[in-house]
Design a protein around this nucleic acid. Structure first.
Length: 208
DNA sequence: TGTCCGATATCCT
DNA sequence: GGATATCGGACAT
């Protein structure tokens, strides 16, 4: 049984949504072909109080605007001038919270994704937030897109994969040292322990 | 208008 | 493990 996630899925506490997304399938229909895979790593950004979030203390700019709207919309932006980062808006209106998608296990359209990524290495295809955007051809044009719209080219599927809570590991988020020791340490990153993504994860943790 | 620097990836040694 | 590519948002001037 496969079904697309509907609005209600995203209108919940952001940490819950971050964990619930593990094991779901992110699909982008690009040039008539499905590209995507199973979500295996996420991070929560809980606006207002979270110093690591773009919407810290309610910062509201053209970039963060979509975070103040309804859950289930896409917040995507560029970092370091060359990588995109895919996020989903969560929680209620006026609460600027979101989930960053950090890694997938590639499942659909693998050959096309290899071309987009210019690599033959399956283990290097979607194991990072910038990499998965390149593999699925996600860019600024998707800013504000509605994952729950009937005609959306980007959506999340529940394909019936069961993930036990014990299989979900958690740890500090990546690359946010600027947020100070407290926010850099909260365990708001989640990953599927059975996935190869743990290799990526553990490497990064060692370097913290 | 100008400056700073980031929720990274890659290539090199 | 270290350098560096390369854009544009945020905020100060």
């Amino acid at each position: 049984m496969t079904r697309r996630l509907q609005r209600g899925f995203f209108l919940k506490p952001t940490l819950d949504v971050s964990k619930a997304l593990i094991g779901k399938f992110l699909i982008h229909e690009y040039k008539g072909q499905k590209l995507g895979g199973m979500i295996v790593e996420t991070e929560a950004y809980i606006g207002k109080k979270d110093k690591a979030a773009h919407s810290y203390r309610g910062r509201r700019t053209p970039r963060t605007e979509v975070e103040y709207g309804a859950g289930g919309h896409v917040y995507i932006y560029m970092v370091y001038g060359m990588h995109y980062q895919l996020n989903f808006v969560t929680a209620g209106k006026e609460e600027p919270e979101c989930v960053l998608i950090r890694a997938l296990e590639p499942v659909a359209g693998i050959e096309t994704m290899k071309k987009l990524r210019k690599t033959r290495d399956l283990n290097n295809l979607t194991n990072g937030p910038g990499k998965l955007c390149q593999a699925l051809h996600l860019d600024k044009t998707l800013y504000g897109a509605d994952l729950c719209a009937r005609d959306s080219k980007l959506y999340i599927e529940d394909r019936g994969v069961k993930v036990g809570s014990r299989e979900i590991k958690k740890g500090p988020r990546i690359g946010i040292d600027y947020a100070g020791p407290y926010w850099a340490r909260v365990h708001w990153r989640f990953w599927l322990d059975r996935s190869w993504s743990r290799v990526y994860t553990f490497t990064k943790v060692e370097s913290l």
